[in-house]
């Protein structure tokens, strides 16, 4: 199914951009008239994905983080958070709750939060090449039926 709308944003992996990243995705998704909770779920999941890029993908340098978000006619939103960082050696282990290599008061909850606040989570990674986190969320039909999608 073809996306009916799409956005792409690229920014440096500075922690000051975490707030920008979740806000820009939330603003884009707002056109589907999501419930407040759905929007906060998305904001939280994006925040976790972007924080992972900042803390883990680029531990010693500033690199590029790209977010592509697509809206499909059924109310499905697909958000890809991509980095060109060091990659994840063992994805299964990285996704285990409380597993972290983060230090600085990181508790290894990022993927657990992403998983429980979205409908589908996919992680692909190549060592030395980077990681793509795909978050999927269905926005309920609510008032969207009245719109021209």
């Amino acid at each position: 199914m073809k996306a009916i709308n799409e956005m792409k944003v690229t920014f440096p992996s500075r922690s000051s951009n975490e707030s920008f990243a979740r806000s820009v995705v939330a603003s884009f998704v707002a056109q589907l008239d999501p419930a407040v909770d759905e929007l906060v779920d998305i904001r939280t999941a994006v925040s976790e994905a972007v924080t992972n890029c900042i803390v883990h993908a680029y531990p010693d340098n500033i690199g590029e983080v790209t977010i592509v978000a697509r809206i499909y006619p059924t109310g499905r939103v697909v958000i890809k958070v991509r980095d060109k960082g060091i990659g994840i050696e063992n994805i299964e282990q990285a996704m285990e709750p409380l597993f972290t290599t983060g230090g600085e008061e990181r508790y290894g909850l990022g993927f657990s939060v992403m998983d429980s606040f979205t409908d589908k989570l996919k992680v692909t990674s190549k060592k030395g090449k980077g990681t793509v986190v795909t978050l999927e969320k269905y926005i309920s039909m609510r008032q969207r039926q009245a719109k021209q999608f």
Binding site: T44, S47, E48, E104, E105, R106, Y107, G110, S112, V113
Partner: peptide
């Protein structure tokens, strides 16, 4: 108004 998992580190620390 908003908290992600960083808040957990904040509490535990």
């Amino acid at each position: 108004g908003f908290m992600d998992s960083s808040g957990i580190g904040l509490i535990m620390g």
